[in-house]
Amino acid sequence: MNPLIQGLATIILGVGGCVGYFYASNLLLDKVLYPAKGRNIASNIRRANIIRPWLFIFPALLVLTVYLAYPVVGSAYRSLFNRSGDEYIALGNYLALFESPEFRRSFLNNALWALFVPVVSVTAGLIAAQLSDTLKWGNIAKSLIFMPMAISFVGASLIWKFVYAVDSDIGLINAVLAGLFGAGPIDVIQIPFWNNFFLMFILVWIQTGFAMVILSAALRGIPEETIEAAILDGANPFQIFFRIKMPQIFSTIVVVWTTITVGSLKIFDIVYAMTGGNFGTEILPSYMMSFMFRDDGRATSVALVIMIIVLPVMISNIRQAQKELR
């Protein structure tokens, strides 16, 4: 029970500490440093208001700096040193990476993930959104397709491990193959190259719900008049979907697409739980984990490669945010 008490204590301490910090620091500012009374009341209030935002934002900035901003620099720096960290080897780690066939394998696999997963998830999500919006039981259907969102990648991997199992009394795929076609059992996890798609489908299974929810909201946001006008002009359902609806939700599709792409570059759990990176299924995050705790230099250099791949998304997001603020 000790860790349970420790956990409770931390919740109380952490939350209490945060509340205490905010309360005490504001009190200090208002009552002691720059009290809103006396001779300097005007300048006191002004000064307090200059400092206060920083009191509010300080803890968040601190953890953001330590846990996300510093690591970008820290990892970049560490990746220039060897395994033990005491010898500067410039780009040695990167050169070793580019020469290693496993790295190339994982890079190509990851590129495949970043293409296949968003294409299929967005398409399936769009179809599900479009279908469910017109059906009476659409909300139940949506809820069920959205459900894998709540399941961990490890849990999802296990769920699909059952489906993919070689034993036709466990694996649904082999049961269907044996039952309908009388075909012998195949281990889909070990088919060279194509096994990647079976792993990717697990992520598709999880991400489709996400795409569906957002795209469904976007579809509902389309002004009715545009659709009515198209119907009056004699457009068929397919024309309405592709010519009227799609262009209007295009920007949302782009957002969903990039989110899923970035996600598929970072997910390590599925490959780790399904194959452990064997059978040619290694991707960059799992390749990085194979160096974690063994060779920090190599691990950070792989992480930096992932960072460089998501950099364009990051820059475009920042630009977008700046545009919205103006």
Partner: peptide, 13 residues
């Protein structure tokens, strides 16, 4: 910008 920073980057440092 920090929204998309891969966690992998933070692990070692």
């Amino acid at each position: 910008g920090l929204l998309v920073v891969p966690i992998q980057l933070a692990l070692v440092p």
